[in-house]
Design a protein around this nucleic acid. Structure first.
Lengths: 160, 160
DNA sequence: CTATTTGCAAATAATTTGCAGTGCG
DNA sequence: CGCACTGCAAATTATTTGCAAATAG
């Protein structure tokens, strides 16, 4: 929860509009589930959203979280983030952005960059089909993992 | 199988070297599983690799495929590709490359671009930790999906 | 030879679905 | 009031693990 309250509020309004537009009901559960994703800078997975929402809505079920997350995805209100190994993560940041990704712990953070937004798509990429957008993934070791610099998360047998 | 044979051969040699170096055995199964990934331009998932290898090695088991794929990953010989929705996919292209990704069917293809390789990482991204590399994802509709231009793969109830 | 690796089958984890009750519009 | 939505539990799918037999080096 580091996303400013007014930003969250704005995103929630978009949700309300979108729901009305396609005729799906804006239930308490949906609202809270969306709030959970919209208010988080880590891109949570279904399980994590579930744990968060449960604190305010102790009766939600995990499957409602799944159903809602995919519904929000279909409405175009959250993006999915291909994970590194684990399950899908969700991202409710509607602004154009890119991702920083820790190769060790999987931490994922958004950042913005006008230069990267303006990237020219090379012809080699256009061959495959139309281009709707581009996104840059920056890989690295996050500050946290750099500090705790022991073995990698997945081990290879030590060189004989 | 569109990767040229000599390229595959070269990748296999790297595998042999790496195995010797860390003292893991280069078994028939491992060789074939690697060949399957190294020889494919689609980034196959475990199940797909399994089906492919099974044709030449009818007795391999799916779990050996999983174990081997992760082993190859640990050895740094294959990358994993965060999927769109489905499971993890593997990529044995050792050259610096970027990805084209169809938003509809999930088709994923490599392409190379010296400009993109040279991308300047914006300071906003450096805040989170060290930078090891960057990769660009180009999203679009592949030629195939553009042709069959019916509804999106995941439907939203039609606007009332 | 001997430690590593494999295949099998069973365990676990993640996600989806069927259904009956509930409540919003 | 009816249809969309929810929670539950069971089904399905994906992935991992334990162990005895097979095999690379």
């Amino acid at each position: 929860m580091v996303v400013p309250a007014d930003e969250v509020q704005q995103r929630v309004e978009k949700l309300a509009t979108a729901c009305r537009q396609v005729g799906v009901k804006l239930t308490h559960q949906r609202l809270e589930i969306f709030r959970e994703v919209a208010g988080s800078v880590d891109h949570p997975d279904a399980e994590t959203v579930f744990r968060g929402v449960r604190q305010r809505l102790p009766t939600v079920s995990l499957d409602t979280v799944y159903r809602t997350l995919w519904l929000l995805h279909d409405l175009g209100l959250v993006q999915t983030l291909g994970p590194r190994r684990e399950s899908v993560r969700f991202d409710a940041n509607p602004r154009r952005h890119h991702h920083y990704l820790c190769v060790r712990c999987g931490l994922t953070r958004d950042f913005e960059s006008a230069e990267l937004d303006a990237l020219a798509v090379p012809p080699a990429a256009c061959e495959f089909g139309s281009v709707l957008g581009t996104q840059v993934e920056v890989h690295g070791l996050c500050a946290c993992c750099a500090a705790a610099a022991d073995g990698p998360p997945r081990e290879v047998p030590p060189p004989a």
